[in-house]
């Protein structure tokens, strides 16, 4: 709670500093932002970046008002969006659909009413509704990690994979990872679901370690899982034997890469800050003539000790 007020103070200072720069445009706009609530690390980071960006933009553009709503399920998100249109008279909507199917027609209704629509991360099930699409690159996320494995392991090396919660997203990542490994001679010993959860990943990794006497590397595919995996490896005393690649750029992991931890050579980004990109571009489109419609795919980048600093957000909860 102490931390919260500190954060608020920092944000406020930023606002004050930015205020004098604001343009003095008379036309006022309202932007609605609908995102899932912070139920796990990645969404927590996404919530943080959304709030942070909104605070900053409100300072930069006094003529903009933001309405932020977080939802724990698709039904609540639909209600939130309907309320925004009916009572807040929004000019633009930035939405990260909780699920694609149920959100498609409500968002379409918003677009049909002439309101600017920006869709983030998860596409709607019908193409062409949104004016702007901003998303991370799931196949790229798997491919970049896979390419690192190919470049840094010899043929005949043995690796294990920890998968996320069974979803399309997880399938896309794992398929791209396996495709990148094709023909390299690297052997995938096992792939089980760790459900993007530290405890589950810890248990799965413990069992891998009992089962396989020789493991050269682990693709944990998520930083929360990487934390559990490394703990299990440390317990088994096999830290020297293998390295671990997580994903998504959790600040503690990035910090360790910056510090050159041999067990964590690299990371692959899937930035929660993509919500900032979406909000920022939407705002830009409203207040200026800058063309912003289209598709924007934020590539998954390889984080190495050399470039880690630019991916490090110490204030983010993620």
């Amino acid at each position: 709670m102490l931390r919260r007020s500190v954060l608020a103070g920092v944000a406020l200072a930023g606002t004050l500093a930015a205020a004098p720069l604001a343009a003095q445009d008379a036309q006022e706009y309202t932007i609605g932002v609908a995102i899932p609530s912070a139920t796990h690390g990645f969404m927590g980071g996404l919530n943080f970046h959304a709030q942070d960006t909104i605070k900053r933009l409100e300072g930069v553009y006094p003529q903009l008002t933001f309405v932020l709503a977080t939802a724990g399920n698709a039904g609540k998100m639909v209600n939130d969006i309907e309320d925004m249109v009916a009572t807040r008279d929004i000019d633009a909507l930035v939405v990260l659909p909780f699920e694609s199917e149920p959100l498609t027609s409500p968002v379409k209704a918003v677009a049909d009413a002439g309101i600017w629509v920006t869709v983030v991360d998860r596409g709607l099930s019908q193409p062409g509704i949104e004016d702007l699409y901003v998303a991370g690159d799931n196949p790229g996320f798997g491919r970049v990690a896979g390419e690192y494995f190919v470049d840094n392991l010899e043929s005949g090396s043995k690796i294990v994979i920890l998968r996320g919660i069974p979803t399309t997203l997880d399938n896309e990542r794992v398929e791209a990872f396996e495709a990148a490994l094709d023909g390299s001679g690297i052997e995938i010993l096992d792939k089980q679901h760790g459900n993007w959860n530290r405890d589950d990943a810890f248990n799965v990794m413990q069992d891998y370690l009992s089962k396989y006497p020789e493991i050269d590397a682990v693709w944990a595919s998520d930083d929360d899982m990487a934390v559990g995996v490394m703990e299990a490896i440390a317990q088994a005393g096999r830290t020297e034997e293998m390295w671990v690649v997580g994903g998504a750029g959790m600040k503690q992991i990035i910090k360790r890469i910056m510090d050159g931890d041999p067990q964590l050579p690299v990371n692959v980004t899937y930035p929660p800050a993509q919500i900032s990109t979406a909000i920022e571009m939407t705002a830009l489109g409203l207040v200026s003539q800058t063309p912003v419609s289209g598709r924007m795919i934020i590539g998954s980048q390889l984080v190495t000790p050399e470039n880690a600093e630019q991916f490090y957000f110490p204030d983010s909860p993620f």
């Binding site: 709670m1 931390r3 919260r4 954060l7 609530s37 912070a38 139920t39 690390g41 969404m43 927590g44 980071g45 919530n47 943080f48 929360d224 503690q252 983010s316 909860p317 993620f318």
Partner: peptide, 11 residues
């Protein structure tokens, strides 16, 4: 606990 952790992780 979600609120205490600001939606993230308390370490």
């Amino acid at each position: 606990v979600t609120w205490l952790a600001d939606g993230g992780t308390l370490s």
